[in-house]
Structure formats: structure tokens, C-alpha cells
Design a protein around this nucleic acid. Structure first.
Lengths: 344, 344
DNA sequence: TTGTATGCGTTATCAC
DNA sequence: GTGATAACGCATACAA
């Protein structure tokens, strides 16, 4: 690490000087403007390479009011579903020459607000957000929306938002097919470990659960319904409470796979036979569900499809200056699918 | 989504006008400059909030030549180790008011080069990189280094690089203690599924393996040593080859946990008793290793420590304009630890 | 303590 | 097809 100060990078002026051309021409050549002679273009490109020139995005963005950068806020990148979605988005955007600033809210609303501000400061061309579980008020995104920056919500989304794009999984159907599957494989007494009802996800999955219970004429035991943060500890604790009772369930639907894993481990420790005495179904198709013994039945959410759809919508939007064109809808639902394994 | 065009954000000129002050004063107040009257400062802050003002990072960065943004390149964010490191880095940098642009190379050298260019264009204040397995030439980072942008390498690092900061796990020791552990639990015939030797990681782990084998006076069977991309399929294939032989190993050291999982699954399918007939040890302490049955013995790499160290070094560096101060070293090794579970 | 003036590197709008 | 010039929003050297 030398003692040199920050050395200046070459600018278009350096290229202009070297080529005895004006900076305007250099800029045009670099941007592949149509009214530039072929030879000039190639001369400029050659000289740029030779001088190790790299466009200064700040100057460019300041002048043109376009950053070709898109912001992304997620609860945490380590959640399997999000990691997959992000990867798809990043690879997709890259093809169109867009960059992605990935931010983690750590599921903190305060952090989410701050990140929205920061991304506003960075003048991102658009924002993609999967909100925290406690985000019920989405007004911290209003400033973006108001100045015409497209906002795409996915996974955890606002319920009444007409100005933004909404992309979500079919959580109602997910809850419904999961519960129906339990009923169809013979479960009579089904428990549900759900996430907090502040989020659309768990509202919808719960509604699907209830619908399936009703259709299969199964009665609901309120002591077996939990709405809580979907952590390993919470799920274990819920299982402890459930199995304290005289009557115990023969089926369990959990709103994520971490909870399903915890439940399975609880069953293992207490000598409850799965799937014999208790059938379990999770949600998300986390890779861990296929590795654990017995492998857990779960609901696939197709993160790849979600990511692709986000990119597609975004590119459409940016091509049209943030305006929806024609009859395109602003709300998209991605199908889900039952992945049957050994716990049911 | 209305039909409005991109609306102008308020600038310091708007605040200046509203307060009958000069833009310079506003700028100083906003940056908490010492020579500004208290009342002026609070007036400015109040008006800024009222007008929904947000500093334009591009303008600010262009002028001051500081972006308060740091670039990060990793092979993929979905790898457990990297996800943890990134989260620690992001949270750490956030405390100091720095942002992070996270980029994935998908383990493609070409992509890595391109990303380095893009981050150069974005004029990040520093760059953090975990390179691809095929990165043996690191010259695409030279331009950053040359203009004084600090570069920190971690995990997969260059071997002869004095100008950058290097933070790595103690891979030699990891390979050594893993192999020693197998030997000490009675293994006589140890196999090794390693990564490609183009990377420092696997060179070092292999060296540790060899050292331990020598110390325990165990002979090496070249047919049981594999250097390959550490995927599930490759590991399975390696196992197939190994167990075709007349003599088979009683111990296996794999350079990552995905390979260990594949090996365990192979053993399960072929009726090989683990740990009875074959002991297995992986690397990284991926969460899956504690979930699978039997739980896999592995090597903990302390991603949290790695992340913390990176932030610490970076903040030191940036405080001193990219210069190492005093006797501080430019290369740091993070210890590793054996996590003993049921496969040994 | 505040104001004035300038420039960061680029692109857009005119001219020619 | 190219050049001159202004402007993007902010931070800073210098002046007051």
C-alpha cells in the first residue's frame, strides 16, 4: 500500500485532447450516438482503452438524471427464497446494463425507512422491496413514488397501493393446498404455526388454511393456532404447548420451513412418529427440507419466476418513463406448488 | 402509477431561498460544519425535513470525490459463509455511514472483471472481493489500487499482493486439524475431496492434509485424492470411483460441506455405516451439517469475525486516506475450529 | 459566522 | 458530423 494520494482518473477531456476533438464528440462516441463518424468512434474507443478511461457514473448521473442503478431492500439475504430472487434479479438487470444496490433491513422497520432514504439520496432509477414483517405503513416509500421512481414490492407487500407494482406468491392457494393435502392424507386434527397477521403473507396463508379446513369439514382447535415470528425457538415452544394437551394433533402446517424443521426435531426428541402419528408440511422448499430425515413436504414458491417477473416489469416500466403501458396490470401472482416428501 | 414525469427533488438552493441564506451555509449546516450558528443549523435541519430534502449523492460525490460507498464482489451470496460475512460487513459499515454495493460474479472470471470495472465507474471508496476459483491473475483490480482505492481480499485471495489487504481463514490449520481428527479417531486410510488447486484455499487445506497424514505416518492413496469443483454431483461421482476399488477408505475429508453431504448420502444409499465404516468431516459449518442425520463433523470458519475484521481494517484505511498506518500488517488470518458431531 | 465564486465530469442544447 | 457552452447539485477556498 503506497503513500500515493488518490490519483486522478482520466476524463473525456483527456481523450479529447489526445485526439484533438471536442469533449462533446467523445461523449457522443462513448454513448454510441448515431451522428458520429465510424472512424471517430473507433478512434475514441481505442484511445479510451489506452488511457484506461472509465466513465464517472456520478458526473454522468448528475447530468442525465439517470443512474442505471436499482435499489433493493430485503429483510436478509441469507433467507433461501430471497437469495434466489436476488440472484435472478441481479443477473437479469445486468443484461440490460443496470446495477443493483442490495440492502438488508434485518427485518427492522426503522432500518427499512433509513434504507429507503439512502436509496433516495442515491437517486436509484427504481426500487425493489420485500418489506419487514412489521411494515404495515408504507409511507416511507411515498417520496420515491412521488418523484416518479418506480417501486416494485414482492413477497411482503402493501395491500392497498395502486401506484406501485406488486408481485407476490399465491399464498392463499399455498395455505389451501398444504392444508388440503394434510386432510387428504387422513389428518383430522390439524395445527397451524403461522407468522404474524401484520403481513399479507400470513393473512393469506391463514385464509387458505381456514378455507381448506372448512371444505374438509374439520374443526379448528384455537389452542393449535399460533401467530408468531417464525423462528426455530418459537416453533419448538409452540410444539411444547401443543403436545402438553390431552388431545394432540395428527397434522401440522407451518408457514415456513424453519418451523417445520423445529417441529420435526421436537417430534424426534419426544418419540412422536412422523408421518405415522403426525404429518408435517412446511413452506418455501428450503434446501434443508430435502436433507433432513425424513425429508419434509413443503410448498415451492419459484423464486426464479418471481425474480424474472420483477426484472421484466421493471424494464417495461423504465422504458416507458415509469408509466404502465396499455392494459398491463400492476399486480401479479406467481403460482405455488406442493412438493410431497416423507413427512406426509 | 400516474402519468407524471420525474419530479424535481428539492435542493439546497430551495432551502437557501426559503431561509434567505446562502447555499454555502445550508451545505455547511447539513454537514455539521463547526462554524455554523446553532440556531442556523436547527433552522436548516427543520426546513430540510419540511421540504423533504435529501442530499443528492451524485452531486456530493462528484464534488468531494468521496462516495461513502464500498463495493463488494462475491461468487454468490447464497453460499452460507458469504451470506454471513456480507451481513456483518453491511451492518458494520452502516454504523459508519457507509453503503455497500453487493455484486455476484457467479464464479465467472469474466463477470468479476466486468464488475470491477463497473465499481470503478461508480467510484467506490473501497472494494472488498472474494474472487472466483479461476482467478489466478488479479490485474483487473490494479486500476483501483493504482488510483488509491483500498482493496480488501478475503477468502479467495491473491498470493503475492502487497498493495492490498488480505483476510483469510487459517486453511492450512483447518486441513491439518480435520485430518488429524480423523487419524486420532482411528482412521488409517483417509480420502480427500479437495477443491481446485488454482485457489489458495485448497492449496492450503491440501497442505494441511498432507502435513497431518505425514505426522500420523499414514500413507496416501492417490486414487483417493480429488481436486475438483466442490459440487454435489462431483462429490457423488468421486465417491463412486473411490468405492469401486478393492480397498476402501475409512476416513474422508471434504473441502466443503456440500461434498460432505453428498458423501454421506452416497454412504447411506450404499449401506456404508457412518461413522462405523467411514468417518466424514466437512468444511464451513454450513447449517445443513447440523440438520442432516447423522450430523456432520466440520470446520467452523467464523464468518462473523471475518466480516468484523474487514470493516475494522477498512475504516482504519479510509480514515488515513488509504494508507496503512504504523506497524499494522496487511495480511490477517482468522482462526478455525473443529466442530465435532456424529460422523466421526 | 456567513456569503461569493468556482469547479467536479458529464451530457444536452444550441450552433455551425 | 462536430464544436462551444451551459447546466446538473453540491462542497470548498477565499473573502467579508
Amino acid at each position: 500500500m503506497g503513500n500515493q494520494k488518490k490519483v486522478q482518473q482520466n476524463t473525456i477531456l483527456d481523450i479529447a485532447e489526445a485526439l484533438k476533438l471536442s469533449p462533446a464528440t467523445i461523449s457522443r462516441a462513448l454513448n454510441d450516438h448515431p451522428h458520429v463518424k465510424h472512424k471517430t468512434k473507433s478512434d475514441v474507443l481505442k484511445m479510451a482503452a489506452q488511457l484506461g478511461y472509465r466513465r464517472n457514473n456520478m458526473a454522468s448521473g448528475l447530468r442525465s438524471n439517470k443512474t442505471r442503478t436499482i435499489g433493493l431492500i430485503v429483510p436478509r439475504i441469507s433467507m433461501f427464497f430471497h437469495a434466489e430472487v436476488i440472484t435472478t434479479i441481479q443477473n437479469g438487470l445486468h443484461k440490460y446494463g443496470y446495477n443493483l444496490i442490495i440492502c438488508q433491513s434485518n427485518d427492522s422497520l426503522e432500518m427499512e425507512k433509513e434504507l429507503a432514504e439512502i436509496l433516495l439520496s442515491s437517486r436509484v432509477d427504481a426500487l425493489i422491496a420485500a418489506c419487514t414483517l412489521s411494515t404495515t405503513d408504507f409511507s416511507h416509500f411515498d417520496q420515491l413514488l412521488q418523484n416518479g421512481t418506480p417501486v416494485v414490492f414482492y413477497d411482503r407487500v402493501p395491500l392497498n397501493e395502486q401506484k406501485a407494482i406488486i408481485i407476490k406468491g399465491d399464498d392463499f392457494r399455498g395455505g389451501y393446498i398444504a392444508t388440503s393435502h394434510l386432510a387428504e392424507t387422513g389428518c383430522k386434527r390439524i395445527a397451524h404455526i403461522s407468522g404474524p397477521l401484520t403481513s399479507n403473507l400470513y393473512q393469506d396463508r391463514s385464509a387458505g388454511f381456514l378455507k381448506a379446513m372448512e371444505q374438509h369439514k374439520l374443526s379448528i382447535n384455537e389452542d393449535w393456532i399460533f401467530h408468531q415470528e417464525l423462528t426455530h425457538t418459537n416453533a419448538w415452544e409452540a410444539m411444547r404447548k401443543i403436545f402438553e394437551g390431552r388431545v394432540v394433533p395428527d397434522g401440522l402446517f407451518t408457514d415456513n420451513d424453519t418451523s417445520a424443521i423445529a417441529a420435526l426435531e421436537f417430534a424426534r426428541e419426544k418419540g412422536i412418529n412422523v408421518p405415522g402419528d403426525l404429518k408435517i408440511i412446511g413452506y418455501s422448499n428450503d434446501p434443508r427440507t430435502s436433507i433432513i430425515t425424513p425429508a419434509i413436504t413443503t410448498i415451492e414458491q419459484f423464486p426464479d419466476e418471481v425474480g424474472k417477473k420483477i426484472v421484466e416489469m421493471l424494464m417495461d416500466l423504465l422504458k416507458n418513463n415509469g408509466n404502465i403501458i396499455g392494459e398491463k396490470t400492476t399486480s401479479i401472482t406467481i403460482p405455488v406448488q406442493l412438493i410431497r416428501r416423507m413427512t406426509t
